[in-house]
Amino acid sequence: MARAGLTTARLVQAGADMADEVGFDQVTVSALARRFDVKVASLYSHVKNSHDLKTGIALLALEELADRGASALAGRAGKDALTALANVYRDYAREHPGRYAAAQLRLDPEAAAASAGGRHAQMTRAILRGYDLTEPDQTHAVRLLGSVFHGYVSLESSGGFSHSAPDSQETWARILDALDALLRNWPAP
């Protein structure tokens, strides 16, 4: 029988908190069992293994990011929407580094279908409606934005910009200006 108070949702939430504290790669079922002061076997009625736990954390992170993105985009268009969504990803990575890393986990097809990943693509495509792009250029632009957002956030979070001028916030603002200009003047094939 499952230990009173332990649920899959509670374990995933605790795993997400742990990921932010010690890093996503350090989250395991045994580490979580130590946190709850229970035997590892007590958790197996809620999660199959560490990969299952990490998948749950990834799904939670994707959902949190999508919710923040949707709120940030409400009523915005064009560069204002682009900046809002970009800042959601950057701010989330700063506040929740372990969860942000979890959101990058490659999900199996079943988990991916159940995830909020589709909402992320829809939000990015909503931004692009303000730039009058058609297919396949929209898909190219979605990939570009995802690459820039994730790439910058990853480099910044690993300390890649901490020892040089100008300030990384200034660079971030310039990158968003450049993306806006590129999207408004998308090159013909």
Rank of each mutant, 00 (worst) to 15 (best):
184 R>E: 09
27 V>N: 01
140 H>K: 07
86 A>P: 12
129 R>S: 11
186 W>N: 01
186 W>Y: 10
70 A>N: 09
189 P>T: 06
26 Q>G: 07
184 R>V: 00
95 E>M: 09
177 D>P: 08
74 A>D: 14
178 A>N: 08
34 R>K: 13
8 T>H: 14
112 A>S: 10
158 S>W: 09
180 D>L: 00
184 R>T: 08
123 M>P: 03
65 L>C: 00
134 T>G: 13
175 I>A: 02
73 L>S: 02
32 L>A: 07
130 G>W: 10
61 A>L: 11
144 L>G: 04
91 D>R: 13
94 R>T: 12
101 A>S: 14
73 L>R: 07
30 S>N: 11
42 S>V: 09
139 T>L: 05
74 A>Y: 15
184 R>Q: 15
162 S>I: 05
7 T>F: 14
147 S>P: 06
82 L>V: 03
30 S>R: 09
51 H>T: 05
59 L>W: 12
12 V>L: 05
59 L>I: 12
21 E>A: 06
95 E>A: 15
125 R>Q: 10
45 S>K: 09
176 L>Y: 01
21 E>W: 03
28 T>D: 10
131 Y>N: 01
137 D>N: 03
153 V>A: 15
112 A>C: 06
150 H>G: 12
93 A>S: 11
106 R>G: 13
111 A>I: 10
85 L>C: 05
158 S>A: 15
138 Q>P: 02
24 F>Q: 03
81 A>Y: 00
31 A>I: 02
21 E>I: 01
111 A>C: 05
26 Q>D: 08
89 Y>E: 15
80 D>H: 14
119 R>Q: 15
28 T>M: 08
107 L>T: 04
168 S>K: 07
121 A>D: 15
14 A>M: 11
24 F>T: 04
138 Q>T: 14
87 N>S: 14
61 A>S: 15
168 S>E: 13
18 M>A: 14
117 G>M: 02
20 D>N: 13
125 R>K: 07
134 T>D: 13
67 D>G: 12
135 E>N: 09
32 L>M: 11
63 E>C: 02
88 V>F: 00
44 Y>E: 08
83 T>N: 00
125 R>I: 10
24 F>W: 05
160 G>K: 00
166 P>I: 00
13 Q>A: 15
183 L>W: 03
13 Q>M: 09
65 L>M: 13
158 S>Y: 11
24 F>I: 03
166 P>T: 00
76 R>E: 00
104 Q>E: 10
161 F>D: 11
52 D>Y: 05
126 A>R: 14
172 W>F: 15
72 A>D: 01
67 D>E: 15
152 Y>C: 02
55 T>F: 07
7 T>N: 12
121 A>R: 12
4 A>D: 07
166 P>D: 05
173 A>F: 12
149 F>T: 03
79 K>F: 12
66 A>S: 15
91 D>W: 08
165 A>Y: 08
180 D>H: 07
136 P>A: 06
150 H>E: 15
102 A>H: 04
177 D>R: 13
159 G>Q: 04
114 A>D: 15
135 E>K: 02
163 H>G: 08
95 E>Y: 06
51 H>D: 06
119 R>W: 02
37 D>F: 07
99 R>V: 07
52 D>A: 02
96 H>V: 03
102 A>N: 05
165 A>K: 13
187 P>M: 03
2 A>Y: 06
82 L>Q: 01
139 T>M: 07
116 A>E: 12
